[in-house]
């Protein structure tokens, strides 16, 4: 099993990594814990699974891409 994990913007800088791989997880929460060595997630953390918004309880599967990022500020 392999799940690609990405971090963006201020979260990428504070964690000191832009991407990593998680070998075994069934939920987004588990992905976060494994990818960040159980860092405390920010209150305003956003997450996407396979390019769609998801939440920390969302299920993940082999081959998924999970992205974590802060509130968006485009436009």
């Amino acid at each position: 099993m392999s799940i690609q994990v990405k971090f963006f913007a201020s979260l990428r800088e504070s964690l000191g990594q832009s991407e990593t791989t998680v070998e075994q997880a069934s939920t987004v929460t588990e992905v976060w814990d494994l990818a960040t060595q159980s860092a405390t997630p920010p209150n305003n953390l956003l997450v996407a699974v396979n390019l769609d918004y998801a939440n920390m309880q969302s299920q993940v599967n082999d081959g998924d891409e999970v992205a974590f990022f802060p509130p968006v500020t485009g436009g």
């Binding site: 963006f8 913007a9 201020s10 918004y53 990022f69 509130p71 968006v72 500020t73 485009g74 436009g75």
Partner: peptide, 27 residues
């Protein structure tokens, strides 16, 4: 469209000013 884009499209702004740089935290 502009309201949806500003609150959900995954873009992030980082400003550079005279004292350094900072991420824009919210729209």
């Amino acid at each position: 469209l502009i309201e949806e884009l500003k609150y959900k499209a995954p873009f992030w702004k980082k400003e550079q000013n005279q004292s350094g740089e900072r991420w824009v935290e919210s729209n």
